[in-house]
């Protein structure tokens, strides 16, 4: 394997939320390096802090302590414009609740980030149709989200996340609201897009289906990185995880 390039670096990140008078420590100091082109899963039970970590990496939330670097740039140093640019071009987001805009058609949803990026209408439409074709919704581009099934809505969201050819795709529980089959399809789609386009994919999940396709799994527990496993280690331990789940 060639030398790995670090695309995301998390350094001693802590996050404390105030809930009434109590301080909740969502993250208690996380260090993590993510390499370009890998498919990384952040696994953990709900409440373990994985979504908080995910939001930090995506520049959607600011850490109380510590730093997040994307391409060696400390994102807490960015101004609003640069942050918007980062979200627009560098990162594609996929959410558990799909988060596509209900008043816009599938195609309009996909082309919205391209519009922000200053792409011309025809070019954006063409690319939007290509992306929708890629996720298997080419014929349904004129449909509104409510006319699409959950799996299809998530495909629109996946197509949208690739709109500006980002270097990183962040997927927060992408299969959380999908049934077994459509969930697997969504994961398969992400996996193949990751390979084809050399995009770094980071997912936060507690779905064991995700393990099979991951290059690396980071387990988060109580706001800390519990353990990291690489693909080769995963194959060995996979059987036991499956059993644990069945128990």
């Amino acid at each position: 394997m060639e030398e790995k390039q670090i695309i995301v670096r998390v350094e001693g990140v802590k996050k404390t939320f105030k809930m009434g008078k109590q301080h909740v420590h969502a993250l208690r100091g996380v260090d993590l390096e993510i390499y370009a082109g890998e498919y990384l899963s952040i696994m953990g039970a709900s409440g373990s802090g994985k979504t908080t970590l995910f939001n930090m990496i995506g520049g959607l939330d600011k850490p109380t302590e510590g730093k997040v670097f994307i391409d060696e740039v400390d994102i807490s140093q960015l101004d609003a414009y640069e942050l918007a640019w980062l979200r627009n071009r560098k990162i594609g987001y996929i959410f558990q609740t799909f988060n596509i805009i209900p008043t816009l058609t599938a195609l309009e949803n996909v082309t919205l980030p391209m519009t922000f990026a200053g792409m011309h209408n025809e070019a954006a439409t063409e690319k939007g149709l290509q992306l929708l074709d890629l996720v298997g919704l080419g014929t349904r581009h004129q449909h509104k989200p409510l006319e699409l099934s959950g799996g299809q809505q998530q495909r629109v969201a996946i197509a949208r996340s690739f709109a500006n050819d980002p270097a990183i795709i962040l997927a927060d529980e992408p299969t959380g609201n999908l049934d077994q089959r459509t969930g697997e399809e969504a994961i398969e789609l992400l996996r193949s897009l990751c390979r084809e386009r050399g995009v770094t994919i980071i997912t936060a999940t507690h779905d064991y289906k995700m393990i099979n396709v991951s290059d690396r799994v980071v387990w988060v527990k109580d706001g800390r990185v519990d353990k990291e496993e690489h693909r080769d280690q995963l194959n060995i331990s996979l059987g036991t995880i499956g059993e644990k789940e069945r128990e």
Binding site: Q5, I7, A36, G37, D71, E72, V73, L78, Y81, E82, A84, W85, L86, N88, R89, T115, F116, A117, G118, D165, A167, R197, G198, V199, T200
Partner: peptide
Amino acid sequence: MPKTDSKTGFFTHDESHRIEFPWKKS
């Protein structure tokens, strides 16, 4: 293959790095 190395000129306010929402679209 999309570029993954972009340390040079990562954030510059040039033409290709602007963010906009045209009036017509808005």
